[in-house]
């Protein structure tokens, strides 16, 4: 973990209530796709944890949804604004487990961390495919970006207004895959757990106090012991999760 100052370079909508923010600053501490950063915002006591969508040297891309007052405030940040950010938080996805053709399963604002994962897997010579699920056509983002990387990408929407109608698990097994990486809402995870043909990893979300393991605000029980979602997570193995009802 490092605390760094970043400068806003771009902050634009990519779907309904969903924004892409590009930040310039030191990204050295971000070591793995699936890690997150924790952003301090003027007038808000707690930081806002956001997963890393893309990261090149000195350039950090995040995609966030305006769901509450903090993230709504974020949409008003203008180019040149400075942000105090804790970077390199959490464990990230383990790419050594991917096999040759992993599938990336994203739901809504769970899609962004899978983009950096896809990029890194391709760099390693792997052939990832992606199944991206959204509620409706107005919520869809990043389909083109995945396709531009060369990822075979399928989009589904719950109301059928874009792509096939249904959920990611309706088409998951149309793909031939060696491992899965998932990020999205927990009901989607539970459906994946019943459908997937291989082991995989899920990235979890929880309300956090500090985001770096000090407060025990985001603890969860797993088959391999108690874990802090911010520190030993957010990525967990499919075989260690205790599903809540």
């Amino acid at each position: 973990m490092k605390q760094e100052l970043f400068t806003v370079k771009e902050n634009t909508p990519v779907a309904k209530d969903v924004y892409k923010i590009i930040l310039a600053g030191n990204t050295d501490e971000i070591k793995a796709p699936g890690q997150f950063v924790n952003i301090s915002l003027d007038g808000f006591y707690l930081r806002r944890p956001i997963s890393v969508c893309d990261c090149e040297e000195g350039k950090l891309t995040l995609i966030y949804k305006a769901v509450g007052r903090g993230t709504e405030y974020m949409t008003s940040l203008e180019n040149g604004a400075r942000l105090n950010i804790l970077t390199g938080l959490g464990n990230g996805y383990d790419m050594t487990k991917s096999g040759d053709c992993p599938v990336l399963i994203g739901g809504g604002v769970g899609v962004p961390p899978l983009y950096l994962l896809a990029k890194k897997l391709i760099e390693q010579g792997k052939k990832p495919s992606a199944v991206l699920g959204f509620n409706s056509a107005c919520d869809v983002f990043y389909e083109e970006e995945f396709k531009t990387l060369g990822v075979k990408t399928a989009v589904v929407t719950a109301d059928g207004s874009y792509g096939a109608k249904g959920f990611v698990t309706d088409i998951l097994n149309d793909f031939d895959y060696s491992f899965f990486y998932a990020c999205g809402p927990e009901p989607m995870f539970r459906a994946i757990a019943k459908t997937a043909k291989t082991p995989g990893q899920y990235s979890f979300e929880e309300r956090m106090g500090c985001g770096f393991g000090a407060c025990m605000g985001c603890s969860c029980k797993t088959l391999t012991g108690n874990k802090r979602i911010c520190k030993e997570g957010p990525v967990m193995e499919s075989g260690e999760i205790i599903w809540k009802d």
Binding site: Y45, L46, E206, R207, M208, G209, M216, G217, C218, C220
Partner: peptide
């Protein structure tokens, strides 16, 4: 969980 909630100038 949730174990954490934000407040004005606190948590």
């Amino acid at each position: 969980t949730p174990r954490i909630a934000e407040c004005t100038s606190g948590m």
